[in-house]
């Protein structure tokens, strides 16, 4: 464990807490893409299959439980909660996210480190996470004004994998036994690059203290 990995996990944790805070306190999920949340729940379900079979550390197990619990409770809020679900704008959240799932699954079957069920599912989760934000980014472009909490949520979500990239670089040079993980590295880089233009507009809006508006 290094400081970059810890910072990445904390940033990721902050992103889900910001989202839960928004939904739980103001009882609204306006501007949040349910499709991205569904993809993330799938990412965690596929990635953490080893949660009960392979104990690595208490920290890892606790964090996996938090990410699983938070992502599924966000789904519950957005789909079942009588007040919150009314603020979900399904006419705007139209990205056909099913078209993301199948290609990631096929790619995971073709390109993986080991052809076992758990390894293919883990690889599938890596590929899917790289594109899971797309419905949310598309929704942000549509809903002109982005409220602060949603902007913070997306920013933190993009920053966490960026910190992981620094963690991978650090581990590669600092840990003699750390080998190459091209699948994780390339997917993580692609994932972070998808946020590039969002980061640009978000940082500008924070700097100039104006509301975040993404270009059409």
């Amino acid at each position: 464990m290094n400081i970059f990995r810890l910072a990445g996990d904390m940033t990721h944790l902050m992103s889900v807490l910001v989202l839960l805070l928004k939904i739980h306190t103001i009882k609204s999920c306006a501007g949040i893409s349910l499709k991205t949340q569904e993809l993330y729940a799938l990412v965690f379900a596929a990635r953490y299959l080893d949660i009960f079979t392979h104990y690595y550390s208490l920290y890892n197990t606790v964090m996996k439980l938090i990410f699983l619990g938070s992502s599924f409770s966000i789904l519950w809020y957005m789909k079942r909660h009588k007040v919150v679900r009314r603020s979900y704008d399904k006419d705007q959240d139209t990205f056909r996210h099913h078209f993301l799932v199948l290609p990631c699954l096929v790619l995971a079957l073709l390109i993986n480190e080991k052809f076992t069920f758990k390894e293919v599912m883990w690889t599938f989760s890596i590929y899917l996470e790289a594109v899971a934000i797309l419905p949310q980014l598309v929704l942000l472009q549509r809903t002109r004004n982005v409220d602060n909490l949603t902007g913070q949520y997306v920013f933190l979500l993009g920053a966490y994998r960026g910190l992981y990239i620094i963690n991978w670089i650090y581990r590669y040079f600092a840990e003699p036994t750390y080998s190459t993980h091209w699948i994780t590295w390339i997917s993580g880089l692609l994932q972070t690059l998808l946020y590039a233009d969002f980061f640009y507009y978000y940082i500008n809006s924070v700097k100039n203290n104006v509301r975040l508006q993404l270009p059409a």
Binding site: D50, T177, Y178
Partner: peptide, 10 residues
């Protein structure tokens, strides 16, 4: 470089 296939990150 030897590295067990288990995934130690989140």
């Amino acid at each position: 470089k030897v590295d067990d296939a288990s995934h130690d990150e989140l």
